[in-house]
Write a protein that binds this DNA or RNA. Sequence first.
DNA 1: GCCGTTTTCGGCCCGACTGTTTTCAGTCG
Length: 571
Amino acid sequence: MDKNEISIILEEIGTLLELKGENPFKVRAYYNGARTVEMLEEDLNQLIKENRLQEVKGVGKALVEKITELVTTGKLAFYDELKESTPPGLLEMLRIPGVGPKKISVLYKDLGIKAVDELEDACLQNRLVSIKGFGEKTQKKILEGIENYKNYKNQFLISTGLNYGTYIYEQLKELPQVQRISLAGSIRRFKEVIKDIDLIVSCEENNIDYIMDYFTNLEGVARVTGRGITKCSITLDVGMNVDMRIVNDEAFPNALQHFTGSKEHNTALRHRGKQMGYKINEYGLFNGEEKVYVGSEEDIYNILKLQYIPPEIRENNGEIEAAELNDIPKLVDLDLIKGVFHVHSNYSDGKNTIEELVKAAIDKGFKYIGISDHSKSAIYAGGLKEQDIVRQHEEINNLRVKYSNITILKGIESDILLDGSLDYDENTLESFDYVIGSIHSSFNIDGDLMTERMLRAIKNKHLKILGHVTGRLLLSRNGYGLDLKKIINACAENKVAIEINSNPHRLDLDWRMCRYAKEQGVRLVIEPDAHKIEGLDHIFYGIGVARKGWLEAIDVLNTSDINEVREFFKG
DNA sequence: GCCGTTTTCGGCCCGACTGTTTTCAGTCG
């Protein structure tokens, strides 16, 4: 059983205990434990063998026992009993907005409700109003919550969130009443999947109502779900919730920091503040009763004797410790990207000609562009047969003469076949400047086999870049179940770069693994996987992933100049 | 359940909003 599975079980134990009305701090201990295990760098088996698991912060005697039982036996009696005694539908009910563990507990005890559908029936039959603590409005709200839950399940790609978030941001920014405004929350932290949009606005007190009115009347607003003095919430037609917080301008940096989160980062930050004698909330930073002047987010971190921490890495994943040591990495940025290698032309399933792509790359200021169409096994995508490759290489030779201010590279996105071999013979593979290896078929084999398949491809001397490694499609398909660490280690050993596929549906390699790859000395490549000119702009999302994964320019191959790139491809 | 140069017991981050209640509990972020 791996860390991820154990983390999920600990998390579920936390939820189950919460439903049972357990001590909230005990519940939190399990949630913390789940996070700790998920983020753990070291191997669990190793830690257990060396009796060092209890040295991990947040893991005490009880969790050591339970994790050990899970690792060694693959089961946990405590968890099984807990699950046995709780109807599974109760867990799902938690996902209805406005319904938490306390309400579920009462509903279960008083009305015997143990699933979402039963709750819906009970609301429709007007049975909730009879319970103490429940009323007309609660029942209505729960019913609406169920509808919302069923319709949308409340998850969106970061690209969707940014589209709508930027639209609202731009509208509000134009208002003279708005002093400062920013997106916050998971979008600002660049989570790959988001649940809602957070906006922070500052203004004079007498303008609050005007701005809230404007906000709730924006085009695309389906309904207003809450409105108070400082907070206003709406749901868009597409089902996405947007929370706007309004503060006075003096508190803007504090509010921005607070609502950017993550919750875990803020908890740790407040804890640090408390030890230093400060209280931190969304309105300010206080030394006793006295408010400490804060002009920017930077000030908050500096007062706490920390280097500024960029929003993307605020996940309580070592950033506070790093900031303490002045050791926050200088994160890679979009303007440092000098070119890309994963681009499809109309030779396979791309829309544009090579020349159009080259011109677009020049316009973007790129110093090089590689063309990498699909290989011959990708029939569905019009993959290139040997004679197509000859034709394509001739065209590139001609374009190289015509466009001397950019380097055009000959690449291929070769299918990694079921046995781990690449799609062409030695001579053909030799004719490319580089080969990207990706899996496009036989997804549904066992994780171990998939790992072996990929390891064999990595050892092929022609393979230079591993494409969309886990094969996941966000919100629709899980990855292949690879042993990612093995894959990354092998890439380090064989000097193979790993792609960060910037397509917002993929964002693969995941940011959580970027740091591990970096530490093993693996180069990452931020790739658009473009199928038309506009697709080149997707690298914006890849940059977000790279930043969230603590990557610096030196970790990213396509920040290098062409000579270094060529050297890397020569191996 | 975890943790400790104040502590091995008694804390554990903090506040807004809502709905149901006449002072507060639950939920959310």
